[in-house]
Computed example of a mutant assay.
Amino acid sequence: MLTFPTCKINIGLRITEKRPDGFHNLQSCFYPVGWSDVLELIPASEFSFTDSGLAIPGDPTKNLCVRAYQLLKADFELPPVQMHLHKIVPIGAGLGGGSSDAAFALKLLNERFALGLTVAQLQDYARRLGSDCAFFIENKPMYCVEKGDVFQEVSLDLSGYTILLVYPNLAISTAEAYAGVRPRLPETPLSEQLQAPIETWRDSVHNDFEDSLFPVYPVLADIKHQLYDIGAVYASMSGSGSTVYGIFQAPVTVSNHLGRYNVWQGKL
């Protein structure tokens, strides 16, 4: 069986406070984007995990897809499988690619072996793998609070718009990104700002990580400016970086300068 774990962007990201458990509370809108990896599940005599495409750092036995299988196997009599992940979505890019792989692995195992898990149950398993994993179970626009794993319905529909993702071949670790943030409550909740027309977001909908990361990595600010220069109605860094995206009324021609980077364009 094949599945295609998609990624997400953050439309606004406000870091509101540091939690006693060391994590941070936030306000953000997670929005799914079609740039995807490929995950295959094949019956096998013993469990194995292989990968191709972009190099995945770290111990393969601790890959989130492997952990997803082990998590379900602890509660269900899962037969062994071969899992193969073809990695396309950049790593350390603020797109939630690894979290998506884990969530889609849970969904694929649930379907393949008819485990009968509900959306809520799958989300509970996903939360044990990572803060934003649970989003990818339903994989639809959501307003996210607390650690990014508590969801509220949001009436935001950007279908028809084109998105251009620009990954400048620069990975930023979550630890590095959070080291520079100063948590604070926004004067106006992000949920209210998102209700305004998208043309007004440039001056109100903000990603707090830009404040500390743009001075360290000027290329990110440069990409954001270029996206506005070629007609984006809204542009922002996604998550804790380093992907910068622009939302456009129609498909765009990528300039030679932006074309130096890893670029993906598609419909929202």
Rank of each mutant, 00 (worst) to 15 (best):
R67V: 00
G231I: 10
A74Q: 09
N256Y: 07
I230L: 11
A55E: 03
I223E: 00
V219L: 07
I91D: 00
Y125I: 09
A105C: 12
R127V: 06
T188Q: 13
L258Q: 05
V219F: 12
G266D: 10
P168G: 03
V150H: 15
Y143R: 05
L78V: 02
P186F: 09
I91F: 05
N10M: 05
K107G: 02
D21R: 10
F209I: 05
T118P: 06
K62D: 11
A171G: 04
I56V: 14
Y178W: 06
G239I: 07
R184P: 12
Q249S: 13
Q123N: 04
Y228I: 05
F135Y: 08
Q195L: 12
F214R: 11
A171K: 15
I91Y: 07
G231A: 05
L106F: 01
I88R: 15
V154R: 08
Y167E: 08
F113H: 08
Q195S: 10
V166C: 09
I172N: 09
S159I: 09
I163N: 10
N10K: 10
E40M: 10
L122H: 04
A103H: 11
A74I: 04
P197K: 08
K18T: 10
T118R: 14
R19T: 00
G94I: 03
T253D: 09
H84G: 07
M142K: 15
V263E: 03
L54E: 02
K224R: 06
A68N: 12
L71I: 09
S236Y: 05
G246L: 01
G148T: 14
A114G: 03
P186S: 07
A250M: 06
S36D: 04
V89A: 01
F30V: 02
D149M: 14
L165P: 13
L170A: 06
R67S: 00
C65N: 07
N110S: 11
R67I: 00
N139C: 11
E146W: 15
V38W: 03
I11R: 10
E138Q: 15
Y234L: 03
A103N: 11
G34F: 03
V66P: 12
E199D: 13
K73P: 04
N169A: 11
R128D: 00
R67L: 06
L39M: 05
L122W: 03
T243F: 00
L268M: 14
W35N: 06
E192C: 08
K267H: 07
C29N: 01
S99A: 13
F104M: 11
I15K: 15
T188V: 15
V219W: 11
G241R: 01
L190K: 10
M142S: 13
L190D: 01
